[in-house]
């Protein structure tokens, strides 16, 4: 089990999650996550060495359907919900970044 979570790790995870946290939030999150991960150490009492992980509860494999045309969502109705749209597409800010 890794050591308790650091402030730097929390800041890195926030970047991975695309979630801007201010300094006060990073502090609070560091102590709360540390508490939860500490709680998780309970499971160290269990012998898990020969246990297969259970990813999902029912044994389903890939589900295929016939490759036939079916109506899709109405484009105008979908785009009506977008914060910004142009020429029948979603409009976003520049993708090539200004990374600090």
């Amino acid at each position: 089990m890794p050591e308790s979570i650091s402030r730097e790790t929390v800041a890195k995870v926030a970047r991975l999650a695309r979630l801007h946290l201010n300094d006060e939030e990073v502090d609070r999150m560091t102590s709360q996550l540390a508490g939860m991960l500490e709680h998780f150490r309970d499971v160290d009492a269990l012998d898990l060495s020969n246990v297969e992980p259970l990813n999902q509860p029912i044994p389903l494999s890939n589900v295929m359907r016939e490759d036939v045309e079916v109506p899709s969502l109405d484009r105008d109705e979908v785009l009506a919900n977008a914060p910004a749209a142009q020429d029948g597409r979603f409009r976003v800010p520049p993708i090539i970044g200004f990374e600090e």
Partner: peptide, 24 residues
């Protein structure tokens, strides 16, 4: 929930900044 297709968007200088600000 990233500010592109539905719901809230907080405008920012580039896409990554928009994601982070919107979700925050």
């Amino acid at each position: 929930f990233d500010g592109v297709r539905y719901g809230l968007r907080v405008d920012a200088k580039d896409l990554n900044a928009m994601y982070g600000d919107t979700r925050a």
